[in-house]
Amino acid sequence: MEAHVDDSGRGDTVAGRDEGGLSGVRSVVLVLSGKGGVGKSTVSTQLALALRNAGQKVGLLDVDLCGPSVPRMLGLQGRAVHQCAAGWLPVYADAGRRLAVMSVSFLLAQADDAVVWRGPKKNAMIKQFVSDVLWGELDFLLVDTPPGTSDEHMAVLESLRGRSPAGALLVTTPQEVSVGDVRRELTFCSKTGLKVLGIIENMSGFVCPHCSECSNVFSKGGGEALADEFKVPFLGCVPVELQLARCGEDGRSLLEASPESGAHQILQAIAQRLIIDHGGDGGGGGGSVTASVAVP
C-alpha cells in the first residue's frame, strides 16, 4: 500500500469529528528529544509495552516520518494498514488488541523506501494520523517524535488543538552534547505551553552481562542535573543492557525477556507513575502532573 497524503489543508479528513480518532483517548503523551540517537524510540516502545502489561490500553503513534523504527522494534515489519469507510485501522501488536500502532512505515510500498517529503506534506500526513486513525478507546496514546523542534512537532501540537495533551516526556543521554539539545527542547515546551512530565536519562551506564557491574561509559547525571535546573521531575536512569538492545532488534517486551533487569524496573516505575497521574485501571483517567517549565 502506498502512502496517500491529503495535503488539502483540512485538519480532519473524517467528516464531523473535531477530535478525529482521538475521541476515545484519555491521555496523550509526547516523547521528545532535541537530539537524535538517544534511544527515544526504544523508550517509547518499551514504555508502551510496560503500560500494556500493566493493564492499560495503549496506542503508539510514530511521527518520525523519515526514520520510522517503531514497527521494527515491535516486530511488525511487513504489516499493512487497512482502510474502512470511517478511516484507517491501526496495526495491533497483540492478539488482545491492547497495543495499537501507526507509522508511515506501514504505508510504504517497500520497507526501504525513503520518505522524501517537504514540510507541508509531512504536516498533512501527521494531521491524517491524528484525525483519520480509528484508535478506539485508549488509556494512553504515546507519540514518538523525531529529534528537534520543527515541522513535525508543531504539526502534532496543532492537530491536538482543542484537546490538550497530558504533557511530554523528554529523553536524553548523560553527555553534555545531548543535554544541551534537550535544554532547547525544554524551552520549546515552555514556548508552546506543553507540560513536562519528566526527564528520562537513557544509556546511563553499561551493565556487564557477566558480573552485572555498571560502568558509566557515557558519564552520568546530566539528565538529573537538567531536571533540577528546570524544576521538572526526574523519572530515572535507564542503563544500556544487552537484553534491552536485543528486545529492540527482535520486537519483544523487556518484561518477557528479562523481568529482573534494571532497565525494566525503571521503565515499569515510569509506567506506574503515568498510570497514577493520568491513567487508572484500564478504564479511566486520574489526576495530572502539573509541573510546568521554568526557563532559567
Rank of each mutant, 00 (worst) to 15 (best):
A111M: 06
Q175L: 06
G205E: 07
R184I: 06
G283Y: 00
R183L: 10
V38A: 13
L197F: 02
E256Y: 00
S258W: 06
V289F: 00
G21D: 12
V295A: 12
R97N: 13
L142I: 01
S44M: 05
L235N: 11
Q110S: 15
S8M: 09
S288W: 00
R98F: 00
G67A: 12
R273E: 13
N53G: 08
L242P: 01
K121V: 15
K220V: 13
F140R: 03
W135H: 06
K191S: 14
D64Y: 02
S190M: 04
G221M: 11
G20E: 12
R161N: 12
A111S: 14
L186E: 07
G198T: 04
L157V: 14
L138R: 07
I126N: 05
I199G: 12
G24S: 08
C211W: 03
G283V: 06
I126A: 08
G282Q: 03
L267S: 03
I200W: 00
F106Q: 08
T290C: 12
V25M: 07
T42F: 02
G37Y: 02
V28P: 05
G248R: 03
D151S: 03
G205T: 09
S292G: 11
Y92R: 05
L226K: 01
I200E: 12
K57L: 11
L170M: 14
G167K: 06
T145I: 04
V217R: 02
V91F: 02
A109Q: 14
L22K: 08
A291L: 04
A155H: 04
F234A: 10
L65Y: 04
S258H: 10
F106I: 08
K35F: 00
S33R: 05
S261K: 01
G280D: 11
I126P: 13
I126H: 07
E185W: 00
V115T: 14
Q272K: 12
H4N: 13
D64V: 13
P239V: 12
G262R: 15
L89K: 15
M154T: 14
L274M: 15
L65D: 11
L244W: 01
R26W: 01
V133Y: 01
L65I: 15
L30H: 00
F106C: 07
A109N: 09
V38T: 12
V70C: 08
V115Y: 02
D18W: 06
V101S: 10
N202I: 13
I270S: 02
Q83M: 13
D277L: 15
F129T: 13
K35Q: 02
D181Y: 01
E229D: 13
P239D: 11
V43Q: 01
L107A: 14
G67N: 08
Q265N: 08
D6K: 14
S159K: 05
V293I: 14
V130R: 04
M203N: 08
